[in-house]
Design a protein around this nucleic acid. Sequence first.
DNA 1: AGCCTCGGTTCCGGTCTCCGGAACGGTTGG
DNA 2: CCAACCGTTCCGGAGACCGGAACCGAGGCT
Lengths: 282, 282
Amino acid sequence: MDATLQSVSNAARLLKAFLSREETLGVSELARRLGLGKSAVHRLLTTLAAEGLVARDSDGGYRLGLVVFELGEAVRAHMDLHGAAGPVLVELREQTGESSQVGVLDDDAVVYVDRLESSHSLRLMHDAGRRVPLHCTSSGKILLAELGEEHLERILARGLRAHTPHTIVEPGALRAELAAVRERGWADAVNERELGVASLAAPVRGPGGAVVAAISVGAPITRFRAIPRQRLARCVVEAGEAVSRRLGWVPEDERDRSRGPSSGAGSSSSTVRTNGREAAHV
Amino acid sequence: MDATLQSVSNAARLLKAFLSREETLGVSELARRLGLGKSAVHRLLTTLAAEGLVARDSDGGYRLGLVVFELGEAVRAHMDLHGAAGPVLVELREQTGESSQVGVLDDDAVVYVDRLESSHSLRLMHDAGRRVPLHCTSSGKILLAELGEEHLERILARGLRAHTPHTIVEPGALRAELAAVRERGWADAVNERELGVASLAAPVRGPGGAVVAAISVGAPITRFRAIPRQRLARCVVEAGEAVSRRLGWVPEDERDRSRGPSSGAGSSSSTVRTNGREAAHV
DNA sequence: AGCCTCGGTTCCGGTCTCCGGAACGGTTGG
DNA sequence: CCAACCGTTCCGGAGACCGGAACCGAGGCT
């Protein structure tokens, strides 16, 4: 059942060690983190290097190789969501002046598939591809709110880590919060993942009406408080609906006649390509 | 010496099978392409799926997982080149109206790390992360021209595949072409990789003065011919110098006094982060 | 200078992993 | 209704793969 290849699993964990965004890692450091012998790590690295998945750095360390970049771009190429969200994110940042992003559910986290940095941002960093928890982010709450009971149960069973004193850690409290989120159609999170940052998110729906992603705006609390909550919520919700429409979703208003050609560059497929392990729920 | 882990190598080749840009692949199909048994492929897939590197599609096939996307973004985050080239690519496309891209050398190919589609383009496709041959593209010629003799020899030894009747396949002819490229500071390729498309490229230099990438403009031949060759070459060469400067390169004109702070957002590191297996040549 | 530490690389033996082949349901299409 | 193809599971034997230890080179501290 869990027939899993040990060395392949080790290789995958090795690659994921670079998700810490460290530029290079050495053999001993990796051996320590993976709990493997140096020789095993060395073999893994030489094998992966031969395939181009890692590359040696000039200083003797190892880094991710360009093939990994290629593979990442191959994933992006199949994400309808990415194409649909781009222009909407630009608009959303213009309206709010803050960072905006789109995230999908993957396993027990939300992964930002696209992101635009705030105009206030000191330095523009390519921050897409980040993975953040579900229970303490606005995007995560949106995705959790539409999850099936059994899946939610699984998440709760793993425990809710308290990232700050304001993180919701009580399963009951989280359920109540999710019910409220479902009710009002948007979610927020203030000080829950990191002190000083806040965000507000709304759902993105695929053609079938299922929630396939969340779109959100995040900012330092001081600037976040400066925007009237209702106005911000309307902006984000409308942005979510805009992305949904570009994905081929039709709102409940036109459920009668044959549909005219819809607006944007939406795909004609009936299932949304979100490419998530868990995003394909019905 | 070549101590390589078989199953890890198989896993890597499996992942790279998705570089064909097919959305999903099945067990049998992969087994056929990799020359492995179905059970072995199945085991590889379940292992990779457990790590999030692949995900099951709703129709039973497998696709790349979001972790791959995350890893790709982690690579991009460390590419100074990406940040430095962005604005220059925008400008270059404005000047020429055609697709422009930046590529680096990896093994025996050039990988486009960033790309802007022509404004004429019918559909905007995310085409970054593509890998193209060296000997029949303008970018490839730029990178080949600065290569050490022994590395060039290795490339030639693998043989030059004729993608079209116009592809340069004679080692001698290629050497002459590369000498001409070095001489005039830019390269072009017309009908050499694919009939009907042409491109022109110029070098991008790191702080040390070594060529670390190539910047190029490509277009259908009819539109390509409409632009005066000298004007196009100047545009591309100047774009290459602009990127180089943003990377911290200082042209030969100020080699005397202590340098004032340079223009853009260039890194202060003395070695360029191109993240290529072969790009770190001295 | 000399020693000591820490990094990457290599070698080796024993265990358990991992591959191929074959059989098993489910589904599609003829 | 059978045939073909898919994904999945099971099994046995060959050999791959892990850990430990030794080797080497580079800094750094006394």
